[in-house]
Write a protein that binds this DNA or RNA. Structure first.
Lengths: 107, 107
DNA sequence: TTGACATGCAGGTTATTACCTGCCTATTCT
DNA sequence: AGAATAGGCAGGTAATAACCTGCATGTCAA
């Protein structure tokens, strides 16, 4: 499976995006910390975090019995650069055309 | 299911991203046109297109017996605005910090 | 009008996903 | 040392996803 596929797949699940959001708000959280309030068994969270790690969206670091999780924004940036940006450009072009046409009608 | 969830789910599959890419390259293609070269039964493609339509990533228009497909960049833009942009910002900040520290060391 | 073509609809299969529970290990704290 | 805490590992289940085939319908063109 290609890297970019893993990232898209990882982002497909709302719980995983929620986890990323939480790490973005506070980096370096432990598993238990991330579990708190997530209405889901610890094992499920572990699994989600595993997928995120597979996609290189987070990295982990052990500290005694604690497993610390860190968010890595690089894959998201790559998705943006390699896949999303071109559509943004098209969209802006469309807006530009629209505005131009509008100005034509108003003239 | 929330709108944004549908979009992320729709983008999770490589075949569906491929379809979007093709429509981006040439808008208004028929189903048969999109099937060509996709090593997949027509019905599967129909299903993928259905999901993309559900996510509002494409819209269709009938013309006689032909079903024309058009790409809509808006949902992708929304994903970018509401979800990706903040991570881009963090990333740029990180780069900036890095550069600043580096300059500190070089001084 | 008949044949060729574009697509829809129904249903079935297999793989994957998102969960769970139960039990085990390692670390910390008292 | 013993209890509490953080996490791993194995396995099981139910829902969903990604495919397929077969047949029906509607449209175009000779």
């Amino acid at each position: 499976m290609k890297e970019i596929d893993k990232v898209f797949k990882a982002l497909a699940d709302p719980s995983r995006r929620e986890l990323i959001d939480r790490l973005h708000a506070k980096n370096g959280q432990t598993l238990s910390e991330l579990c708190a309030g997530l209405d889901m068994a610890r094992q499920s969270v572990t699994q989600h975090l595993g997928l995120l790690e597979e996609a290189n969206l987070i990295s982990v670091q052990w500290q005694g019995r604690d497993k610390l999780h860190y968010f890595n924004p690089v894959p998201i940036h790559e998705i943006y650069e390699r896949w999303i940006r071109k559509f943004e450009r098209q969209r802006l072009d469309a807006l530009h055309d629209f505005k131009t046409k509008l100005e034509g009608k108003l003239r």
